[in-house]
Design a protein around this nucleic acid. Structure first.
Length: 554
RNA sequence: GCGCGAUUAGCUCAGCUGGAUAGAGCGCUGCCCUCCGGAGGCAGAGGUCGCAGGUUCGAAUCCUGCAUCGCGCGCCA
């Protein structure tokens, strides 16, 4: 609808230029916004104010000139007026609005999707927690965010891949193996000191016990190196499987698990370094190899190869990101914990160093989750192994509430997550408010079916029966849904969907309380059923983007 | 010290990339069950958008400085 309106405005501007009533001869991007106040119309543009400068004419005067042309065609779609300092406000005829209902019903689950990103491949990499322990609640927020961003991008037409980067190379896997081996030996009666740098969590003991039960005491006969590698790879696999299982139960499913070790095995890390060398972006200092990331805006250079010959994680990150683009992605999105924000400039530098536009990489920083119970902070410390796992939270509060809460703020703002509040099935908990709206429509449908009323399909009902102000408001909200999805996609901000859902649910509940959908009047009942099921479709579509279910009963 | 981010109602937060009289939820006060599900609705109180300048027709939004808070600044992973 606003595309057509923009075209009208563009045409009007052209006419003014041809008539000579306006002389700027420029066509600025037409900014159509939905005013906060309905008295200001359904749409509004500041075009006259933008043109005022080059026209050297008062904004209102420019607006009058434009409006005089716009009015010639206005009767087809509504009316125009000038307001305030020079806004041009558009009021669409009600019939135009109610036509979206047909679109909602015709497209069903497709309604709200668009072709904005058609033909482009984008990868969203998220969670990517080290496979050295179970996921905790912070990973859950990253998972919900990454998954929803992926879903939203996919809804606007991108070809999307969800990827988990598995840090299975380097020191930490060795540390995992060592931690396990020590616990294993403890179980076999040895008394020893458990080093601080080893993983402290109780799960280490459990895995060691599991290994012992399955394979027995044979590790004691192996050289230490081999024993560490053996039990480490056992533990790493078990932990990875556990992570995968937790994520699936959280409704997150990765298309690809990408192994860091594989980058070493196939020589990609060496090649990545070689490319930077060839481009003259590296130098040696004090026995180490450096990448001059400061050439691209980083505040200091970074080491690729240490003086002891070991590669840094940064070196494999270069290879990893280079590989992403070689795999054909046009855009790459990394979802990180906000404590990694310092890594953004150096990763952007990697892209620039490889000859890519740094904008092709977007980093979404997810702030930490502040876990509360009844308003009191729950102490957590990864080092001591005392943390609340994602698994525990899912089991306790449920997947829907969890995901909804995680997505209810912008990702870069901190989030209070109160376990007791999340469990409450009350008005303090916004998930149920939205889901309840959906269940309510389903309930109305059941009721209508009992009364022998069938759900009307497109064109079957008389939309002229929808004369209430609330009905128009609802339909306008439905019409906005596509823009909301596009905005969420463009900005990688799934929380916009959450806010939209709350508004839609609120308008629906309000409407529901004012009168009945199923009345004695058959024609009105059918039209209202048609409307209310349009609402239901959009509620469902939006909830599914967030990975939250749309229940028919609660 | 340098860098990044935050600062909006009692609390938790939005604010559509610079628009018109700054919004929502919770909490608080007072109402609404003859009615398709009350996990609901209606009404009300509540603001110096951290502070000070600047940019322009117009600033919560952009720029500069300051204050407070958080995070990050290894040849760690």
């Amino acid at each position: 609808m606003n595309q057509r309106l923009k075209q009208h405005i563009h045409d009007a501007l052209k006419v003014c230029y041809e008539l000579g009533t306006l002389r700027s001869l420029i066509y600025p991007d037409i900014d159509l916004e939905i005013p906060a106040r309905s008295e200001h119309g359904d749409f509004s543009t500041n075009l006259a104010m933008v043109l005022a400068r080059t026209e050297k004419t008062a904004p209102r005067k420019v607006a009058e000139t434009l409006v005089s042309v716009l009015e010639e065609t206005a009767s087809d779609w509504g009316r125009v007026e000038i307001a305030g300092p020079g806004f041009i406000n558009f009021f669409m005829a009600a019939g135009h609005w109610f036509a979206v209902l047909d679109e909602v019903h015709r497209r069903g689950p497709e309604y709200g999707r668009s072709a904005m990103g058609r033909g482009k491949k984008v990868q969203v990499e998220f969670v990517s927690a080290n496979p050295t322990g179970p996921l905790h609640i912070g990973h859950g927020r990253g998972a919900a965010t990454g998954d929803a961003v992926a879903a939203v991008l996919s809804a606007v037409g991108y070809e999307v891949q969800r990827e988990y980067y598995l840090n299975d190379a380097g020191n930490q896997m060795y540390t995992l193996g060592r931690s396990l081996l020590l616990r294993y030996r403890e179980l076999l009666g040895e008394s020893l000191e458990f080093p601080e740098e080893c993983y402290q969590g109780e799960y280490i003991r459990e895995l060691a016990r599991e290994y012992l039960e399955q394979k027995g005491a044979l590790l004691l006969d192996l050289p230490e190196q081999d024993a560490v590698r053996e039990i480490g790879s056992f533990g790493g696999n078990r932990i990875r499987d556990g992570i995968d299982r937790d994520l699936r139960d959280f409704g997150v499913c990765f298309d690809n698990w990408y192994s860091e070790q594989s980058l070493y095995d196939c020589g990609a890390v060496e090649r990545g370094i070689a490319v930077l060398k060839e481009r003259g972006l590296t130098y040696e200092k004090e026995g180490a190899l450096w990448f001059r990331t400061t050439d691209f805006g980083d505040d200091k250079d970074r080491v690729l190869v240490r003086s002891n010959g070991n590669m840094t994680y940064f070196a494999s990150d270069v290879a990893y990101h280079r590989g992403k683009f070689e795999r054909g992605f046009d855009r790459v999105i990394d979802v990180w914990g906000a404590d990694h924000h310092g890594y953004v400039p150096r990763m952007k530098a990697v892209l620039a160093g490889l000859g890519r536009d740094a904008e092709d990489l977007q980093c979404i920083l997810v702030q930490l989750v502040n876990l509360l119970r009844d308003g009191k902070q729950v102490a957590m410390s990864t080092r001591s192994g005392e943390f609340v796992t994602l698994r525990e939270v899912i089991d306790e509060v449920g997947r829907d509430a969890c995901r909804f809460i995680f997505l209810s703020r912008r990702s870069d703002s901190q989030l209070d997550f109160d376990l007791e509040l999340a469990k409450k099935q009350s008005n303090e908990n916004p998930v149920y408010y939205v889901q309840y709206a959906h269940a309510r429509v389903c309930s109305i449908n059941r009721n209508a079916a009992e009364a022998g009323l069938r759900l009307p399909t497109a064109g079957e009902s008389n939309l002229g029966c929808l004369t209430l102000e609330d009905e128009l408001v609802l339909v306008k909200l439905l019409a906005r849904y596509g823009d909301v999805v596009e905005g969420a996609a463009q900005n990688c901000e799934p929380h916009r969907i959450v806010f939209y859902l709350q508004e839609l649910a609120a308008r629906f509940h309000s409407y529901y309380n004012k009168g009945r959908v199923v009345t004695e009047d058959l024609e009105t009942s059918r039209a209202r059923l048609y409307l209310v099921n349009g609402v239901r479709t959009v509620l469902e579509n939006a909830l599914l983007l967030l990975g939250v279910s749309a229940p028919e009963r609660m």
